[in-house]
Simulated scan of single mutants.
Amino acid sequence: MSLVTDAMRAAASETYEGDEICREKSKQLLTEMGLPNGLLPLKDIVEVGYVKETGFVWLIQKKKCEHRFEKIGKSVQYATEVTAYVEPNRITKLTGVKAKELLLWIMLKEIYVDVPPTGKITFKTPTGLFRTYPVDAFQLDKNDNKPAVASIQIKPALEVKEV
């Protein structure tokens, strides 16, 4: 059962269909709200909608997906429908997102970036448990859809000279 109704779609300030534009718009919205743009790395997005007056946003993808944030070594699972209310530096009433902790998948309910900026982002569960990580672990490189990583220079181990 979908949480997104036709009435919500009608009230939306913005709706988009198609994977490429939906990825772009979701990253743009996260950035505008002061959140890292790699927070919702969904695949095959069908629809994105945003109701500006209430901050309600939804993302619908073809099938659920799992993503591993390498910098923190954590896996996150995204349902076919992800909904939330967004406001500056905060996501509340989040649905459709679970993080793996040990052997359990734990539902996430709230995400916020510390203000003033400390470079930390906090994830809360419905029970009040939380984890804090560096914001840059969820920031995408500007050139593609991969998390930003430090550049690596490869130098030859030996230089061969002909005699």
Rank of each mutant, 00 (worst) to 15 (best):
E70S: 14
F69L: 14
L35W: 00
P41K: 12
P41T: 05
K109L: 06
L29P: 08
S26D: 09
I111P: 05
T118Q: 08
Q153F: 12
I121P: 11
V113R: 12
E81D: 03
G34K: 07
G55Y: 14
K120Q: 13
P36I: 10
I111V: 05
E24M: 05
T83M: 05
T118E: 12
L102C: 02
G119A: 04
A137S: 15
N143R: 06
V51G: 09
L39M: 04
Q77A: 15
E47S: 12
I91E: 01
T125Q: 02
M8H: 00
K52D: 04
Y50N: 13
Y78H: 11
V57W: 14
S151A: 09
L108V: 03
L103V: 09
V115I: 05
K62Y: 15
S13M: 04
S75H: 15
L94A: 01
V48K: 09
Q77R: 13
A7W: 02
A7R: 08
D141G: 04
K62P: 06
A84V: 04
V163M: 07
V135F: 00
A79H: 14
E53D: 15
T125K: 10
L108I: 00
L104I: 00
W105E: 02
A79W: 10
K27E: 01
L102D: 02
K43T: 11
Y16Q: 13
D44M: 08
F123I: 05
T122G: 04
M107F: 07
K109T: 08
M107I: 08
M33D: 06
G55D: 11
T54E: 13
K25V: 02
T83C: 04
P147G: 01
A150S: 13
E101K: 02
I45E: 03
V115A: 00
T125A: 07
V57E: 10
L35F: 11
Y133H: 12
K155W: 06
S2T: 07
G38I: 02
P156S: 00
